[in-house]
């Protein structure tokens, strides 16, 4: 646990051009990713961003489709009580719901999964449940969830259908992944914009902005959070950093693909 005031943060930054944890304004914390960690899932990963840790697992089901000719894709992120003393069990609160919907929109807008291929008939096909559990929390669950979710999707396995039922022992040999999403979350404390805020920094921020970009540098998700305001220059600065980060972080996600479980 760490606690300091906004004044302390600002004074320290003005004197040292560093944040209280020693980082520069546009610096990520350490990232660690491992693919395919849950064998009961049809695709999984664990991702650590500083001290925030997220496990993602995919489960595939077969049945009716919500929309004709399009597989179902459902993202749910759980702020588990194991992650932080302030997280309680029970139905998701507004933070958990917002988090789930942000990440859902990013993956959906970027069409990370070819949902058309996941429809076997007009009204019947696969449902992809992408579920994530935040198991340790120190801010920026958004970016950590995107990392874990993206890594899980990159090892997705779609079971074959036999006799109108899933055969979870045999998988369709095809590629369902057609894009990647990288997310950058910023906090604005007074006029200082910092990347990848810790929990304390998030509490002090007037505004938080998450920007998701895909591998072609399209912006595929934006969420402004917090009670404060944001001007055009500040938004531009954030977008510029998000786009600049994209190749580096993408390499981290793809590179880790070779880190096999044991």
């Amino acid at each position: 646990m760490i606690h300091y005031s906004k004044e302390t943060f600002l004074e320290y930054y003005r004197n040292y051009t560093r944040r209280i944890d020693g980082r520069k304004a546009d610096q990520y914390r350490e990232i660690a990713i491992k693919h395919d960690v849950i064998k009961t899932a049809e695709g999984s990963a664990i991702a650590r961003l500083g001290d925030t840790l997220v496990v993602a697992g995919i489960k595939i089901e077969y049945g009716d489709l919500f929309e004709d000719n399009k597989g179902n894709f459902i993202v749910n992120i759980d702020l588990s009580p194991i992650a932080h003393e302030s997280f309680v069990s029970g139905p998701p609160d507004e933070r958990g719901i917002e988090l789930s919907r942000i990440v859902d929109r990013g993956f959906r807008s970027a069409e990370v999964l070819n949902l058309g291929k996941l429809a076997l008939e007009a009204k019947k096909g696969y449902t992809v449940f992408l579920d994530m559990y935040v198991i340790d929390y120190d801010g920026n669950a958004v970016d950590a969830s995107y990392l874990a979710g993206m890594a899980a999707l990159s090892n997705i396995r779609i079971p074959k259908i036999e006799n109108d039922k899933l055969n979870r022992n045999e998988f369709v040999q095809d590629n369902f992944l057609q894009n990647h999403v990288i997310s950058s979350t910023f906090a604005k404390i007074d006029d200082i914009i910092i990347l990848d805020p810790t929990h304390m920094e998030s509490e002090l921020a007037d505004v938080l902005v998450s920007i998701a970009v895909d591998r072609d540098d399209n912006i595929v998700g934006i969420q402004k959070m917090g009670n404060g305001g944001l001007n055009r220059d500040e938004l531009d600065e954030m977008i510029e950093i998000a786009l600049k980060n994209r190749p580096k972080i993408l390499n981290r996600i793809l590179g880790e693909k070779d880190v096999k479980d044991k």
């Binding site: 646990m1 760490i2 300091y4 005031s5 302390t8």
Partner: peptide, 11 residues
């Protein structure tokens, strides 16, 4: 009792 103003609290 003494009030701890400013600074950083760390556990």
């Amino acid at each position: 009792v003494r009030l701890l103003r400013n600074g950083v609290i760390y556990r």
